Measured scan of single mutants.
Amino acid sequence: DTLHVTQDGKHIELRGLSEEEIKLVEELLRRGRKVEEALKIIEELRK
């Protein structure tokens, strides 16, 4: 699936995420994380 995010005035499209990963990214962003940080966390969880 694809998640569309706008952060720091930039539109970012995150592709290839599972539904659970999207929920996790959304939660991390709500808690003030940056998109880059959220993606690093997803990458770690995929290992």
Score class of each variant (00 low, 15 high):
Leu14Asn: 10
Arg46Asp: 03
Leu29Asn: 03
Glu20Pro: 10
Leu39Phe: 06
Glu19Pro: 13
Glu36Ile: 11
Arg15Pro: 15
Val5Tyr: 00
Ile22Leu: 06
Gly32Leu: 04
Thr6Arg: 03
Glu44Trp: 05
Glu19Thr: 12
Ile12Cys: 10
Leu14Glu: 11
Lys47Asn: 13
Ile12Lys: 04
Arg33Glu: 13
Glu21Cys: 03
Gly32Thr: 02
Glu19Ile: 14
Leu29Pro: 00
Glu20Gln: 10
His4Lys: 03
Lys10Glu: 13
His11Gln: 07
Lys47Trp: 07
His4Asp: 06
Val35Ser: 02
Glu26Gln: 13
Leu17Glu: 00
Leu14Ile: 15
Leu28Gly: 04
Gly9Ala: 03
Ile42Lys: 00
Glu27Ser: 08
Leu17Lys: 00
Lys34Val: 07
Glu27Pro: 01
Val25Tyr: 04
Leu14Cys: 09
Glu19Asn: 13
Ala38Met: 15
Asp8Asn: 07
Arg46Ser: 07
Leu3Met: 09
Val25Gln: 01
His4Phe: 01
Glu13Asn: 04
Glu44Gly: 08
Asp1Phe: 00
His4Pro: 06
Ile42Cys: 02
Glu37Cys: 08
Leu17Asp: 00
Val25Ala: 10
Arg31Met: 14
Glu27Asn: 11
Arg30Val: 10
Glu21Val: 03
Glu43His: 10
Thr6Pro: 06
Leu45Gln: 12
Asp8Ile: 02
Glu27Arg: 05
Glu13Gln: 05
Gln7His: 05
Val5Met: 02
Leu45Glu: 07
Arg31Lys: 14
Val25Cys: 07
Glu21Gly: 01
Leu39Gln: 06
Leu3Tyr: 00
Glu36Gln: 13
Ile12Gln: 05
Arg33Lys: 14
Glu21Pro: 00
Asp8Phe: 00
Val25Glu: 00
Ile42Glu: 00
Glu36Gly: 07
Thr2Tyr: 13
Leu3Asn: 07
Glu21Lys: 01
Glu43Leu: 07
Val35Pro: 05
Lys34Ser: 09
Leu45Lys: 11
Arg30Gln: 13
Val5Ala: 03
Glu26Cys: 10
Lys23Tyr: 12
Leu45Met: 12
Glu36Val: 12
Lys40Trp: 12
Lys23His: 13
Glu36Tyr: 09
Val25Gly: 01
Leu29Tyr: 01
Asp1Cys: 04
Glu13Trp: 03
Leu24Glu: 06
Lys47Glu: 11
Gly32Tyr: 02
Ile22Asn: 03
Leu45Ser: 08
Ala38Gly: 04
Glu43Asp: 12
Leu17Trp: 02
His4Glu: 11
Val5Gly: 06
His11Ala: 06
Arg46Thr: 05
Gln7Glu: 15
Glu43Thr: 06
Lys40His: 13
Asp8Tyr: 00
Lys23Ala: 14
Leu3Thr: 09
Glu44Tyr: 05
Val25Asn: 01
Arg31His: 15
Arg30Trp: 04
Glu37Gln: 07
Gly32Glu: 03
